[in-house]
Structures are given as C-alpha cells and as structure tokens.
C-alpha cells in the first residue's frame, strides 16, 4: 500500500470549482501522502493552480472537502477557513507562480515577516514589545537565528541585508521557498518552483526540496512542468486534464499510462490515432 492511501496529510474529496459556467475543476479527489513529495502535473489550463488556490484558501471551492491532517492529530477543513488561518493554524504554506516577495524589504525582513504570528504573541500583541520586554528580545533573536539558518541553507547569507527585489530570478525563487518554510509549515505547496531556472539552479532546487522533506519532515505538494524535476524527486504524481484527474500513482506508473502520454507527455504524430483508440477517444 502506498503512503498516500495509508497516511495522508491532505485529502481532497470531490473538489469542484466553477467560475460562472466554466468548470475549472470537476469532481477531483486525491490524497497527498505524509512525508511525500507529490507532484501535480497537467497541460496549461488543466486547473492545477486552481487546486492550489482552493487548498490555500484563496478560492472557496464550489463543492467538495479538503482535509488537512496535522501531525498532532488535529484535522482542519480547509474549504471553510479564511486564507490566513490556513497558514497560521493548519500549517499549509505556499509560494506563487509569479514570485511574490516583499521587494522593498531586505531578505532578513522577508523571513521575519513569515514568522509574524509567533513573534506577535511573543511581543504581547505589540504592547510588551513597545515596553521592551526581554521575553520579546529572546523570541526575536530566535526568529533571526531561524532566518539566518534558512538564508545559509539557500546560500544567500551574505545578502541578508540587501533588498529582495535586487536578487536574480533563481535566488528569488529559493528565497520564496525559504520564506514559506520560516512560517513552520507541515505541508508546503510550491507553484512551479523550477519555472525559469537553468539546469544548475534546477538541480540545486531538487536538493533543497529533498532536504526539506528529509530533514524538516515537511510534506511537499508541487505543480511542475519540468518533467526532469517531477520524475527525479517526486514519490507520487497526480495528472490533471481539463479539471479532471486522469492518472494517479508513482512516477513510473504515470509515465507509462497511455492517457497521460496522449494528454500531456505527447506521442509522435503517426501514433496519435493508435493511442486514441487504446484510450477510447
């Protein structure tokens, strides 16, 4: 039995999202295994980012249920929670397809903002902080240490005091992942983390994701177009097409699924008719 059926961290059941008459996602169900790297793939417009937006609360799904099973046995129905609570309480963090850093703030500040909620409590909801209580200074120091750790991990420690908008594209991608990790998530959702990266950066990213999964114990759900990334690092692949799941399994199973080949990976022109017959189109 696979981990995603035995011990899921996230279960998506009958998720449907309609925008007016357009069905972006139709009756989608899949699980994300705890401690897995799960890849969500599919052609452009298949509804991958819509799934992400439903999971992280930026859209309210029309129908369906999204359950987050936290390590401490708490369960959260994500479709009923406002977006900021999904990050704060259910511990689901995300990055964006078009990078959303705080460009005018330094790298360190970006990572400090990610630790807003624990720091807010430590600062006595600002009152203790204004009075300069020592408990806040201690919490702030810990937050800086955590930020320093992640900056070191992504190799940007020397640029800690530089504005985030000054970073090259690949570094911005990694900083966004580090920022999401600073919020202490149990599930990290990455929207096309390898988009626009060169091969070297792409392999660095793979190492970072492996590290996050192995050492931090954070499960990862990612959308990706880059097949080398998907096949190399993911344990579980879910394939979407036109808002519906067409395949679900290990990378090898998916790679050899004729439906996937027809819809996404592509076949030589002369084989299209044959494949379509096999699939039943």
């Amino acid at each position: 039995m696979s981990s995603w059926t035995n011990n899921p961290i996230l279960t998506i059941e009958h998720l449907t999202m309609r925008f007016g008459g357009l069905v972006a996602i139709g009756d989608l169900s899949f699980n994300v295994g705890r401690g897995d790297i799960t890849a969500l793939i599919g052609p452009n417009g298949a509804g991958k980012t819509t799934v992400f937006n439903c999971v992280t609360g930026f859209y309210k799904p029309t129908e369906g249920r999204i359950v987050m099973h936290r390590a401490n046995k708490e369960e959260y129905l994500l479709e009923r929670m406002p977006d900021f609570k999904i990050s704060a309480k259910a511990k689901v963090a995300r990055t964006f397809q078009n990078i959303r850093l705080f460009g005018g703030m330094t790298l360190l500040e970006n990572l400090m903002v990610a630790q807003h909620n624990p720091l807010m409590v430590a600062s006595g909801f600002t009152i203790g902080g204004v009075l300069g209580l020592s408990s806040f200074h201690k919490a702030e120091k810990e937050a800086v240490d955590r930020a320093r750790f992640w900056l070191d991990r992504i190799g940007l420690l020397e640029r800690a005091d530089a504005p985030a908008a000054d970073l090259p594209y690949g570094d911005q991608r990694r900083l966004e992942i580090a920022r999401a990790m600073c919020s202490g998530p149990e599930l990290l959702c990455l929207d096309e983390p390898a988009a626009g990266l060169n091969p070297k950066e792409s392999s660095e990213l793979n190492a970072l994701l492996q590290y996050i999964r192995a050492e931090q114990g954070t499960s990862i759900l990612l959308i990706e177009h880059d097949m080398s990334v998907v096949m190399e690092i993911s344990d579980h692949v879910v394939v979407l097409d036109y808002g519906e799941k067409i395949s679900d399994g290990t990378p090898d199973e998916v790679k050899n699924d004729p439906k996937v080949i027809a819809a996404y990976l592509g076949v030589p022109d002369e084989e299209v008719d044959q494949v379509e017959q096999e699939v039943g189109l």
Binding site: T56, F58, R94, R100, L101, F102, V113, N117
Partner: peptide, 18 residues
C-alpha cells in the same frame, strides 16, 4: 513589519498567515 509587508504585497501576507 507586517504593515510594510502589507504595503509591498497583500496576497503574500495572507499566504504567510497574517
């Protein structure tokens, strides 16, 4: 810091639990 982050990007703020 949250105020300034809000000025920079509100959606990113919400994704970080603010």
């Amino acid at each position: 810091r949250a105020w300034e982050a809000l000025r920079e990007d509100e959606i990113a703020c919400r994704s970080l639990g603010i």
